[in-house]
Design a protein around this nucleic acid. Structure first.
Lengths: 220, 220, 220, 220
DNA sequence: AATGAATGAGCATTCATTCAT
DNA sequence: CATGAATGAATGCTCATTCAT
């Protein structure tokens, strides 16, 4: 009955973790759609494919479940943002093209994807009521990613690609520009095409470079 | 029962309209704080200083009340935006200073005030679920205000103050930049100081002008 | 619309108070039958002939309802005990007969009646879990009634009818004897006949007088 | 699976019976604390140090478990009472001292101990609802112990130590007096000191002997 | 228009009980 | 025998909505 192959050792925990994850995903989905108060635990359970009891066994409480969801999502988002930040064009060939590609990745992987949408909605619906819920995210998320992005801009400035007074401000502005054309779509849940992503990124980067770009640095 | 004397005509309707307004204000407040599902009609009634029945007499239904709230708020917001747009510096003296003042007004009167916050929250919490609710706003709001702002930019460009390819894009970018520094504060309901408003506007306008400004047009 | 006759003035409050009382009575009944945990608020409401909401409007909470029940019952019991104490034979003609009559009244009006049964059951089922609930009762009930009864015995002793060392002990013993024959019946909710009451009282008083009675005091 | 060697025979059954007992003890404890309806099988299992399944394996049902608890406790109580009855002073030297010692033992071993408390609570909480549960106890318990005690008193009376009309009544009264001073403490679960026990017993016996004692019989 | 009650639905949560591993 | 999940029924409580006064 118990085969000798290793993977099975992981079977029970896997199903456990898998259930945990599917619960959190379903909960995120329902919380976003209906808000915390409007979310129905039975619906979450059904959407996760588990019984109501399992939800309670795993998370004990609706509020607890929200906490777990926020934690999970913010962790994923943070990880995604840092991954994407790592693709920032430190030694660009064609700065505009590189920044556009970067902006597209940012939108695709962090802002316009499922998790990004969840986080944004949760922030707006519950951010003011449970600030503590998002305190961790603020510290590990924006506080650090904005600084990291600012550092990249500062390096580009130092290398002669950009002309920037305050890299922090520039970083926030870059992100604001990158989102400028997509906000409405995301609020109403419209699906965003690749082309829209690219256009938005291009618009943003062009504006950004008109503001802060320098006539390409002297090549050595 | 309805006497013919004038005073009464004023008294009853006034209190009627006043109640209507206070109900809508209270409802807006509670809907934003608690979300539609979490909002309690008794609480709204209490916060409006009227009885539950009066709420039903006026609006008939929770959903109806939401509709009324959205209508009222979007109307106010739209009016405010157009009022503020009217203060756009068409014939600027000091373009940067004029744009900064404009941006401050925009934030102060349309985006960071009570109604702006309400609309933003409602958009995020209910926008995806009841897109129809906001269809009117989209048409009368962003669609027109963005165009109007784009037209102003186009005129400035034509007058030699700006160098713009696509005024629509520039308008969206201007708005995005104006909000860049304040989003987090607004999500968490922090109070925003005058100075923060001014700094945010200054940052935004500087970036915008670095991107699209021209060495002041030749004065005649 | 408002008739001049007095009774009507009391109509609304009456129904309110009447409902309050019927809720408490029903709750007492159900709490005793099923215990606090087993009591079903819907059942209480039904038994009281009101809607569930009315129960919540009046008492807010299951626990609160229990508190109200205990308060009401202990008040009634205390009042009944003091009323009965007032019938204690201070200047007896036939001491035995007088004490028997007193004991019968005590059992009938305070111990074997509905309220007495309720209080006893609540004491046993919830006394250890919510001692605070009954703190008031202990102070205003036993503490005072025992003392009052002891005082009566002391006076009888002083008048030469009894020979008592410690009136407090005697009072407790009198009560214990009065109940000796009825405990089992009350635990199982058997109905107690008048005759049983009288026999129990007679047995108790005979024992008590054999222990503490004096060969009738010298008549003047 | 079940080896033929003796030790195992002892081990498995022992643990089995031990578990059975610890389940019943835990159940008794929880039933008394929370009442039947409020008792949680998981809690009982945890308190017994076994798994929920084991509880079901042993007793099959919550109601069944209650039956087992009542059976066990009443058996223990009955056994205890008869053991104590066996220590009744049949040929007393100092009747008062002997009866006091007997009363102390009675309280200590049968009434104020864990089982006594459990039985009393169960009687009050479930006695009226499930009279059948306690039918066995009534027959094997009070019916017999009261008779046995009455017989002892009758013998003492015959031997000239007591003067009693109805030994049954005297037996009930003795028990009532013995408990008079401790009821309140037991209802609220207060711990009862040795001294309190002795005082209560002394008070009771003094009263009893004043009522029924005779100037010590002439020694032969 | 306000107040209090009622109705009926909904929902979070608990729990007894069973099943598979 | 333990663990964890599942099922299904309760149950406390809230709430939208209506009605009567």
């Amino acid at each position: 009955m118990t085969p000798a192959i290793a993977p099975d050792i992981a079977v029970v925990p896997r199903s456990h973790t898998a259930k945990r994850l599917s619960i959190i995903d379903a909960a995120a989905c329902v919380f976003c759609r209906e808000g915390f108060a409007g979310a129905n635990i039975d619906l979450i359970a059904a959407e996760a494919g588990v019984s109501r009891q399992t939800v309670y066994n795993h998370h004990g409480d609706k509020e607890n479940l929200l906490v777990a969801v926020v934690r999970e999502i913010t962790e994923r988002i943070n990880a995604g943002v840092f991954d994407t930040l790592a693709t920032f064009p430190d030694k660009p060939v064609d700065l505009e093209a590189d920044l556009v590609a970067f902006a597209v990745r940012l939108n695709q992987n962090c802002i316009c994807n499922r998790d990004g949408k969840f986080l944004r909605k949760l922030l707006h619906t519950e951010g003011e009521r449970y600030p503590a819920l998002f305190a961790g995210w603020r510290e590990d998320g924006p506080a650090k990613t904005w600084a990291a992005l600012a550092a990249r801009f500062a390096r580009l400035a130092h290398a002669g690609w950009l002309e920037i007074d305050d890299p922090d401000v520039a970083a926030r502005q870059f992100l604001a520009l990158v989102n400028a054309d997509l906000q409405m779509a995301m609020i109403f849940g419209d699906t965003v095409s690749e082309e829209q992503l690219r256009t938005a990124a291009t618009n943003a980067v062009r504006c950004f470079l008109r503001a802060y770009g320098k006539p390409r640095p002297a090549a050595i």
